[in-house]
Design a binder for these strands. Structure first.
Lengths: 396, 396
DNA sequence: TGACTTTCTCCAGTGACAGGACAAAGAGTC
DNA sequence: GACTCTTTGTCCTGTCACTGGAGAAAGTCA
C-alpha cells in the first residue's frame, strides 16, 4: 500500500489539514468559515490537497436548505503509530489521521533493559497491530520516553531512570526500522498534548499536566504549545526538594518529592506498613501477591483502610505543596492530574486541592480547576500521534 | 511639536521599525540583509515609512568600496516615557525611539498613598523632564506597577502591597493625562524586558528574572516573550511557602518566602539583630539613622560584619531553594537577579548559586548562568519604554 | 412551480513581490 | 586620468496569490 508521501505545500494547506484533523470531515463552505481565505482560494488549495491524496472527497452531506456539500476528509487510509514508553510498561496504538485510536496494546516492560530490547518489543507490538488489519503501514510515529529529550534531534539526554538510553538516536533508529517519519518527546509532554487534543484540556491555552506514575513529571503548555525548556528537561518536578536533608532519593540528592510520593514510593511505603502490621488490608494483599503496587493501595483505600488513606493523603499533601508553588509561579488556567496513580482518585485530588487552594494566592487559584485527566492510558498515545501529525501537517 | 501619529501599516514596516530600534541607524542594504524581502520591496516600504515621518534619512555613510549609502534611522524627535513605580520609590525616564535613556529621575514614594497621589507625582516628574528640554512631548509611555496587572486592559488586579489600586484604570487615566498611548505591566516583567533589550539577557530566549526589592517577584520569558499567566499573576513567587506553619506573612498565610527574605524582611531582621546586640555595625547604623534598610545590611556586610553576612546568606539560601525548584520546573537558559537587594552582591549570589547547583538536576544546571542584572534601576524604565515601543511598532 | 438558500466553480482584476537591468557613486589600479 | 570593480539604490516587468462577483448546480419551502 502506498504510504503518505506528500506534505502540505504551504501554510494554508497545513492549516486545512489540521482543521480536518481536529474537526473531522467538513465541507468547503465550513472550512471557509474557519480559515481566513476567500472561497475561491480555498477551493484551489483543497483541489491541490485532493490531487496529493492527503484528503479525499467522499459523498455528499445532507442538505441544510440548499445545494448539498461535498464531504472533505483526511485520507482514511492514513495511519499513525503512537508509542508511550513508561518505566514499567509500554502502550502502543494505531490511529487514523483524525487521531482516533483504532487499536491499543499495553504490555509490561522494564525500560532499564535498554533501547535495543525495548524497541524489539515495540516493533513486535506494532507488527501485531498491523497484522490485525488495522494498518497496512504507518505514515508517521510519535514516541514518548520517560525522561528528558533533546527534542529537535529526538535523542534522550541524561535520563535518570533509563541510563542506558543516554544519547541513543531514538528518532533515527526507529525511523529506519518503521520506514516513516518519527518524532520523540518526553512522555509527560505527550500526555499533556493528548489531554489537550481530546481530553479535559481541550480549550486551555496555558496549563500544567502533572503525571504521577513511577516518577513524577509535569507537562507545561504555554499558549497552546508544549514548552520544553532550554535543554529539554522542563517539567522535571520529581526532584524538587520538599524536605531539607530528607529521605535519600535515587537521584543522589536528599528530600526530593519523588522520594516521598510516586508510584514507586507509595508501593514501598505500603509494603513497609504491611510488614509493620499497621494495615490488615495491605498485609493481606502483600501476602497474596508477594509485593505491593500503587494499585493495591488504591484497592485498600477503596475498602476504607485507614493506613492506605493516610499514605495517599500524606503523599497528596507533599505533592500539593509543590503544585501550589508551581501555580503561584506559572499561574495556569488549569491543572490536570494524570498517570498511573490517578486510580487513587478523589482522596488524592482532595489533598492536592486543599494544599493548592490554601497556599497559593487567591488571584491564581480563584478560577483554577484541578481535575483528573479523562483519557487515562490513551492520553500518551494520542499525544504521540498528535506530535507526529503536527510535524507532518506543517509546511515542508 | 507634532507627535507620532502614524503606525506601521503592515508587518514589514513593523519589522523594519524594530530592526532600527534594536540595531540603530542602518542603510537600506543592511536592512535588506536582516529582513526576508527583495531590495525593491524593501525600498518601497522604507519610502512609505519616510513619508509617514516615522523614520528619516539623514546623510550619507562612509563608503565601503562603492556607492555611499543613506543612513536610515528612527525619527530622532520621538520620545518615550518609562515609569517604574516601586513600593517605596519611583523611576521616571525619557528615551528616544532607540530606547536610549536621555534623562532619568528617581524619587521616594509610598505606593500605598493610592493611584491619584502617585500619578500626580509621576506627572510632575514627567513635566520636569520635559521642561529640561529632553522632550517636547511623549509619543508613548510604559508604566510598571508592583503587582499583578490585567495586561490587555492595563488595570492592576488584587495587588497585595497596593490595595487602593485594585481595578484602577491606570492605562486609560494616564493615556488621557499624557495624551499618548500607554501600556501597563508588572514591574518585574519590565525589568526582564529591560535586561533582555539592553542588559545581560540580550541573547536569551527562555529565562527568569528574579527581582528582590521590597518584595520578591520573578519575570518569566518564554521564547523571547514575557509570559504573564492566565490572570496576570505569573511569577508571583514571594508567597510560595518555604516553611510549613512558619512566620506570619503580610498576605495572611504563613511561611511565605517574603516573610523570610526581601528588602523589608531583611531590614526587620537587621533591626532585631541590632537591638539584641548581635551586631555592633548594625547597632551603630541603627543609632545613626533611627531605622535600617537593606542597604545598611550591605554596608555592614561589606565591613565584614558576621551577623549581616549571616542574614544575607540565610536569606539567599531560602531564596535559592525556591529558585532551585523553579529551575527544575522551567529549565531556563539564564537566571538574572535584580532589584534593590542586588547591593548585597556576591554574598547573596554565592548563596543562591550554591542552593541551585546543589538541588537542581545537572541537566538543568549544567550550563546555567546565574548572574546579577547589569542595568540596575534603569532596567525597569528601559523595559517600560520597550513595552510601549513594542506596542507602537506593531501593525495598526 | 416559483422564490429563496446554500454550495461550489469560474473568471477577471488587483496588488504584492521577486529579479534583473541599470544608474549612481565611490575605491583601487595601472 | 582612464579603466575596472564594488556597493548602493532605483526602475520596470512578469508572475503569482488572492479577492470578489457572476453564475451554475442543487437543494428546501410554500
Amino acid at each position: 500500500m502506498r504510504r503518505m508521501t506528500a506534505r502540505p505545500a504551504n501554510a494554508h494547506q497545513a492549516r486545512l489539514l489540521r482543521l480536518l484533523r481536529d474537526g473531522g470531515p467538513n465541507s468547503r463552505a465550513q472550512l471557509g468559515d474557519q480559515i481566513d481565505l476567500s472561497r475561491s482560494k480555498l477551493a484551489v488549495e483543497v483541489d491541490r490537497l485532493l490531487e496529493t491524496g492527503l484528503v479525499v472527497a467522499d459523498g455528499l452531506a445532507a442538505s441544510r436548505g440548499g445545494r448539498r456539500s461535498h464531504n472533505i476528509r483526511l485520507a482514511p487510509e492514513l495511519r499513525f503509530l503512537g508509542v508511550d514508553i513508561g518505566a514499567t510498561s509500554v502502550d502502543v496504538a494505531v490511529t487514523n489521521a483524525e487521531l482516533e485510536v483504532l487499536g491499543h496494546i499495553n504490555q509490561p516492560l522494564d525500560v532499564r533493559e535498554g533501547p535495543v530490547a525495548v524497541f524489539e518489543q515495540v516493533l513486535a507490538m506494532a507488527a501485531k497491530l498491523r497484522a490485525s488489519g488495522l494498518a497496512e503501514g504507518f505514515d508517521g510515529a510519535g514516541i514518548g520516553v520517560p525522561g528528558p529529550v533533546r527534542f529537535p534531534e529526538g535523542v534522550p539526554v541524561a535520563p535518570p531512570i533509563m541510563p542506558g538510553w543516554d544519547g541513543f538516536p531514538v528518532r533515527e533508529a526507529l525511523s529506519q526500522e518503521l520506514g516513516c517519519p518519527v518524532m520523540v518527546d518526553n512522555d509527560v509532554n505527550l500526555m499533556a498534548m493528548g489531554e489537550q487534543h481530546a481530553g479535559v484540556a481541550r480549550s486551555a491555552r496555558d496549563f500544567l499536566c502533572v503525571k504521577i506514575g513511577t516518577g513524577i513529571g509535569c507537562g507545561i503548555v504555554v499558549g497552546g504549545e508544549v514548552y520544553r525548556g532550554t535543554t529539554g528537561s522542563a517539567g522535571d518536578i520529581g526532584h524538587i526538594q520538599v524536605e531539607p536533608d530528607g529521605r535519600q532519593c535515587a537521584c543522589g540528592n536528599k528530600g526530593c518529592l519523588e522520594a516521598y510520593f510516586s508510584g514507586a514510593a507509595l508501593a514501598r511505603d505500603a509494603e513497609e506498613a504491611a510488614r509493620e502490621g499497621r494495615s490488615g488490608e495491605l498485609a493481606a494483599l502483600l501476602e497474596a501477591a508477594g509485593k505491593l503496587s500503587a494499585a493495591d493501595v488504591a484497592v485498600a483505600a477503596a475498602a476504607g483502610d485507614a493506613t492506605a488513606l493516610d499514605l495517599i493523603r500524606e503523599g497528596g499533601n507533599r505533592t500539593g505543596q509543590v503544585i501550589a508553588s508551581l501555580v503561584s509561579f506559572f499561574n495556569p488556567g488549569l491543572v490536570v492530574i494524570g498517570g498511573g496513580v490517578t486510580g487513587l482518585g478523589h482522596t488524592l485530588l482532595a489533598a492536592l486541592r486543599t494544599q493548592v487552594y490554601r497556599q497559593s494566592l487567591p488571584l491564581a487559584t480563584g478560577n483554577l480547576p484541578i481535575v483528573l485527566g479523562e483519557l487515562g492510558p490513551t492520553a500518551g498515545v494520542i499525544g504521540a500521534a498528535r506530535l507526529i501529525s503536527d510535524h507532518l501537517f506543517s509546511p515542508a
